[in-house]
Design a binder for these strands. Structure first.
Lengths: 207, 207
DNA sequence: AAAGTCGGCAAACGGTTGTTTACTGAATGA
DNA sequence: TCATTCAGTAAACAACCGTTTGCCGACTTT
């Protein structure tokens, strides 16, 4: 096989992917500050030096992981917002979606929860930035709902942030709980969402 | 000086304190998985071997730090709950207390936020256990308030967990924000608390 | 077919690490 | 006073670490 352009690039991408996957796997049980270049390359089946053909740094690799992790989360939030209003069913469905997401992307969620306040500045900032965009999107979705009529923009934004924060907390709780405690977490999360929604319905009545 | 019993113990406690303080200092900018025994002893002014006269492990030391960190937080929550009900002023005061606490115990708060989902199992579990006790205390405080009359115990508990989660999130946000963005964080936190409180007031009206 | 590009490798660099060992000397109790 | 305890030490251990170097050989372009 030769003279077919793109083989080189494809092989390189494959190694790159192997590095990213290996790192994500290791990060499920360790901190970013706890994994090393050698460890990652060992797991990926490369030589230590090979790492530097792809990333300058482990934190550079981690920033890529951040983007990938939140891309999948983004898809989820879009599905939630597509449905109508703050009704009872949409709450059940949201929590179920979060649970599914944690089951399917356990490593990504762990990584985000772990490094959100972790010791590596650039990674922390990347996560914060993505979460910000995330809240923007939620805010836009909320603003489009009838329940938000007459709401000041700032209030919509703070509600969005509250929802995002709650979603992250719920996802983290799912992570920690075994399949046994899953239902308990879900029930609590649903009730909390119902309470927040109650507050939302009566927000303009007072103050 | 001699023959005065207790000198030995006192000196040992002093070294122990030095180790704990050194570790806490280092943990302000690094992950627990990122600091080493040698690094801590160097900072504390001990020889590496000296560490093992006090702790078996770095994670054993960290668990002690967890307890110390939450002891100070405990004092804070007691002050908040001592005041009356979910009125407007108590919300302002709570957020102000959180801000103060972060200013005064920055290292402790950083440590908790960082290791809450960190890579060291025993530390994670210690933090989770303490946060649980914490929520218990908040729940007890809430149950004693008139606003909780007629509430099922489970609902009080979930409200307590929501408050605790929100408090932790707020504290973490204060950490990340420079003194400039502090007021923005505080304003958002206050509004969110007001919304939750609104939900609380109308909780029994529906559903 | 020849020349160039470049991803991956082995090896070496100087440095770090956690932990154990045998020891010293001051605080202790008899 | 004398024997004992024990916090702290220096030194050594083998095992790692991140990063750079020079090189090879398969892909790519001309």
């Amino acid at each position: 096989m030769s003279h077919t352009p793109g083989v080189r690039q494809a092989q390189k991408q494959q190694s790159r992917r192997a590095l990213l996957d290996a790192a994500l796997g290791l990060l499920e049980h360790q901190n970013l500050s706890g994994v090393g270049v050698r460890e990652v390359t060992r797991e990926a089946g490369l030589s230590p030096a090979g790492f530097y053909r792809h990333f300058r740094d482990l934190s550079e690799l981690a920033v890529v992981l951040v983007e990938e992790s939140l891309a999948s989360l983004h898809g989820m939030i879009r599905r939630v917002l597509a449905e109508q209003d703050g009704s009872e069913e949409i709450i059940d469905r949201s929590v179920e979606l979060i649970a599914d997401h944690v089951r399917e992307h356990r490593a990504h969620v762990r990584f985000l929860a772990r490094e959100r306040h972790g010791g590596v500045r650039p990674v922390r900032e990347a996560i914060a930035a993505e979460f910000g965009r995330f809240a923007d999107e939620v805010a836009a979705g909320l603003a489009a709902q009838p329940a938000s009529e007459g709401w000041p923009e700032a209030d919509v934004r703070m509600l969005a942030e509250l929802y995002v924060e709650h979603m992250v907390a719920t996802a983290a709780a799912f992570l920690e709980a075994g399949p046994a405690g899953e239902e308990r977490i879900a029930r609590t999360a649903r009730t909390q969402l119902r309470l927040i929604t109650t507050g939302r319905r009566h927000w303009l009545d007072e103050g």
